[in-house]
Amino acid sequence: MGVFKKKYRPDTETQVNGARLVTFVEPKHVISEQFRTLRTNIEFAGAALDKLQVVMFTSAEMSDGKTTVSSNVAVTWAQAGKSVLYVDADLRRPTAHSTFDLLNTRGLTTILASNAQPKDIVQKTFVDNLEVLTSGPVPPNPADLLSSARMASLIDWMRNNYDVVVIDVPPVMAVTDAQVLMPLVDGAILVTTFGKTLKANVQRTVETLRLTDTKILGTVQRVRGGKNDAGYGYGYGYGYGYGNE
């Protein structure tokens, strides 16, 4: 496994420049079709639930691609006519403002730490039907804010105002932020990268999700593509294995 770890250096491109929205820029690209298939599979996986409205995207480790997957799947939901809110709850390494070219002077942390109204903080994007709640200023106590009663009330507000809420949270193995949000969501998607993500960390992440009774809607495995992959570099596959063991 050490060989793989040397090949995969931390991916800072998304952190600096935001995720690449292939689903918006090239909706007919094969990668865009893969994201639409992911969306459909998530809907099928959630069909047995009482509701599938608030979906959390997480990973076991950093640089597994959860932000790219979550933002592109959110775009496909919006393109399908759903009213979508994308929430950047990765308060330590925020990226949504870069992805959607928005200001981040106010955001999720502003609402949680003050009396600001969500409708005044949420921002429209260049994607029809898609609005974004950026992270806001980085706080000293992310987990405390996310576990607050105000966060629970905010999720209720989201449910009442949008068809689908996509929440991007930090890796489960890195910090406790994702764990405190698990009781508030309808299901979770686990993103991994083939040849990088350690199997032991994936197993521990699945165990953590199950301890909180979080429905695992499936796993997305990101696979590095070849040089002719139009510059996007990865392919995406969806599986049910970890959710059904």
Rank of each mutant, 00 (worst) to 15 (best):
E13C: 06
S83P: 00
Q203D: 13
Q53S: 14
K51F: 02
K7V: 07
G65N: 07
G235H: 13
S32W: 03
S148G: 06
V3L: 12
K124R: 14
T12R: 11
R9Y: 04
L217P: 10
V127M: 12
R39D: 05
L91Y: 09
R20I: 01
I121K: 10
E26K: 08
P139I: 02
Y86R: 06
T37A: 15
T176E: 07
N17F: 10
V69S: 04
Y86M: 13
V30L: 12
V172K: 05
P137H: 03
Y8C: 04
S147V: 06
P142W: 04
Y234M: 09
I111T: 00
I155H: 05
G233W: 01
L130S: 07
G2R: 10
Y234D: 15
L209C: 05
E131A: 11
T67W: 00
M182T: 12
R36E: 02
K7M: 15
V206A: 14
Y234T: 00
L130N: 06
T197V: 07
Q34E: 07
Y238L: 05
V16L: 15
T105M: 06
F194M: 13
A78S: 09
L217F: 02
Y236S: 10
E131M: 12
S59H: 07
P27Q: 05
A80V: 05
P170R: 09
G226I: 00
T176H: 05
M62G: 03
P142E: 10
M173Y: 03
K227F: 07
